[in-house]
């Protein structure tokens, strides 16, 4: 009985839409329903060149932002966890982007990136460089988005590492000190292996975020130029609410759900591993 209200809402907004998305991807045509199931939407999926671009972008985006954010997060956590003066201030600095709305900070980044008056190009101008069209050049736009994503996410992941670092037994470090181990050796042999469960946990969450966080696209590039920076969820949004092809958007959503299933399986693997470590 106590479970009922929460369950009703969960079913309405999670399970029912999943089922309906799958149904629509077979029975839907545009915004209408057909009487017979077809594979037309999926056939279109295979022929859609934009989708190939979008998928390539999405995977590249994840493949770069996730590892870079994680490496930065570990570095941040180590610095903030150490004995450095002013580490409280530093921790706040790293963490601030996490609490700010993506949309608002994207507006500031838009200014950094803008071609004529933008801060980055002014800076390059000082060094005599002609400037880069950060968001308008198809070969650069996606990387500009990545830079902002890394800035936004690294501090968030730092928190998990910070939590993990505080659980590491000080004795291990004392032992390492007796052995006269160098700082790098200590990190490689003690800290990093003990952070492994956290890294796996963060990895899955970072991948999930890479696929579901597209807010900055609305401000910075709108997926352009010519889809060079389009990502899967943004493409779903475009199909559903700009091109009004709900059925095709459903087929795309099924694709995204498949990615999530793979991530979920990975997560279960992670939980197994965590148990193993404890």
């Amino acid at each position: 009985m106590l479970l009922l209200p929460a369950m009703c809402l969960l079913v309405t907004f999670t399970h029912y839409p999943v089922v309906k998305t799958i149904a629509r991807s077979f029975y839907g045509f545009g915004t209408k329903w057909e009487s017979k199931a077809t594979l037309d939407n999926y056939r279109y999926l295979l022929e859609d060149e934009v989708l190939m671009q979008v998928l390539y972008n999405s995977f590249l985006y994840a493949a770069i932002t996730v590892p870079v954010s994680i490496v930065l997060a570990i570095a941040m956590a180590l610095w903030v966890n150490g004995k450095m003066a002013g580490k409280g201030l530093l921790r706040t600095a790293y963490f601030t982007p996490t609490v700010l709305p993506m949309i608002s900070v994207a507006n500031i980044w838009l200014f950094f990136y803008s071609p004529e008056i933008g801060l980055l190009n002014k800076l390059l101008g000082v060094f005599g460089h002609g400037g880069v069209n950060w968001l308008g050049d198809p070969s650069v736009a996606l990387y500009s988005l990545m830079a902002m994503t890394i800035w936004k996410e690294a501090g968030f992941f730092m928190i998990f590492y910070l939590a993990a670092l505080q659980t590491i037994d000080q004795n291990l470090y004392d032992a390492a000190a007796i052995e006269n181990a160098g700082k790098w050796t200590v990190f490689r042999r003690v800290t990093f292996p003990l952070l492994m469960p956290t890294t796996l946990f963060v990895l899955v969450n970072a991948l999930l975020n890479a696929f579901k966080l597209v807010d900055h696209l609305f401000i910075l590039t709108k997926g352009g130029p010519n889809n060079a920076s389009n990502l899967l969820l943004y493409y779903i949004f475009e199909n559903a609410f700009s091109f009004f092809d709900t059925a095709y958007a459903s087929a795309l959503t099924v694709l995204l759900l498949l990615v999530l299933v793979v991530l979920a399986l990975l997560q279960f693997g992670v939980i197994e591993k965590r148990v193993h470590y404890r």
């Binding site: 999670t14 839409p17 309906k20 629509r24 579901k212 969820l233 779903i236 709900t246 459903s250 959503t253």
Partner: peptide
């Protein structure tokens, strides 16, 4: 729902 967050299902949730 931890995996399938509501923003991914915008199409159907909008209809609902």
């Amino acid at each position: 729902q931890l995996m399938v967050v509501p923003e991914i299902l915008i199409v159907e949730n909008y209809q609902t």
